[in-house]
């Protein structure tokens, strides 16, 4: 089962939930955690994995052989990103604008364009106790996260439980991360910002046809509008975590709930059970 942990609003506790859940499932089959928040990856802070391998993420960008090139301009014409300019005797490439679609090299009539890798990030993998771990890191100054996210997801096992820690928001990096998940856990907090962004996240999951459930974090202090929204939308609140200074302190030190407050383990196992039931029921009646 592929289970994503996402949220519209940042800082609601995605990583804390994803890592605590992974650790709580110890001894219940194979568990892999993929940190797809490649702009600001944090899961490693909580899981402290032993890294056993890494690979650069390379975007294939054009390299023009100036001797073979006739300056016909076809490459510049086909590039949707204007990453190649041809004028007079010149061919200029702008690798940082290139998305690596491959159109220029394929369509060059002289076959004068080859592709070379431009590093935009790195993926690393390893393990933390019995949990398999992988994450990606977008290089500073790079704009495009999806290629790094795709590379992290390529490391997913084809069986067992895969937990994906997604980036915040609702745009392309989030879609890239959660795509293909069997379920998405949306972590929110009971504040106006939390609710506003939860609604956006729910719409995103609807669009992608991924069933979702809620983890209500830092509960008990403010209003009940999130609960009301969930009732109206028929989205289950699967776990509630109270606003608690002890939890905040543990979090600040990079300690999960599963380790810092082991009594929470059972709650996470139950959470997993509920998700499993929903996914199982859905798989049996997919038309629902």
């Amino acid at each position: 089962m592929i289970l994503s942990v996402a949220s519209g609003k940042g800082g609601t506790g995605k990583t804390l939930i994803a890592t605590s859940l992974a650790l709580s499932l110890k001894g219940r089959g194979k568990v892999q955690l993929l940190d797809c928040d490649v702009e600001e990856p944090n899961a490693h802070i909580f899981l402290k994995p032993v890294i056993s391998g890494s690979e650069e993420v390379l975007i294939p960008v054009p390299h023009v052989d100036e001797n073979t090139c006739t300056r016909c301009g076809k490459c510049a014409e086909v590039c949707a990103y204007h990453a190649i300019a041809v004028f007079g005797e010149y061919v200029l490439t702008f690798p940082e604008l290139c998305h690596g679609c491959g159109a220029c090299s394929y369509l060059c009539p002289e076959k004068a364009i080859s592709e070379e890798g431009r590093e935009s990030g790195i993926v690393e993998w390893g393990h933390s106790d019995t949990i398999e771990f992988a994450h990606g890191r977008l290089n500073i100054g790079e704009a495009m996260a999806p290629p790094v996210i795709r590379k992290v997801k390529e490391l997913a096992h084809d069986n067992g439980t895969i937990i994906i820690d997604a980036p915040p928001g609702t745009s392309c990096p989030v879609v890239e991360s959660v795509r293909g998940s069997d379920f998405c856990l949306l972590v929110t907090e009971p504040t106006p910002f939390g609710l506003n962004d939860l609604e956006l996240a729910v719409e995103t999951m609807k669009e992608l046809d991924i069933p979702c459930g809620i983890v209500l974090n830092r509960a008990g202090f403010s209003d009940d509008k999130v609960e009301a929204y969930c009732r109206k939308e028929n989205i289950p609140i699967l776990l509630t975590i109270p606003l608690d200074t002890e939890i905040a302190r543990l979090y600040s030190r990079g300690v999960t709930l599963a380790e810092g407050l082991p009594e929470w383990r059972e709650g996470f196992v139950e959470l997993y059970g509920k998700i499993w039931e929903i996914v199982d029921e859905r798989s049996r009646c997919p038309q629902r």
Binding site: E39, E40, A143, A145, G169, P173
Partner: peptide, 10 residues
């Protein structure tokens, strides 16, 4: 601004 370090932040 948005969170992160990617496209919208830049």
């Amino acid at each position: 601004g948005p969170p992160g370090i990617g496209c919208p932040v830049i």
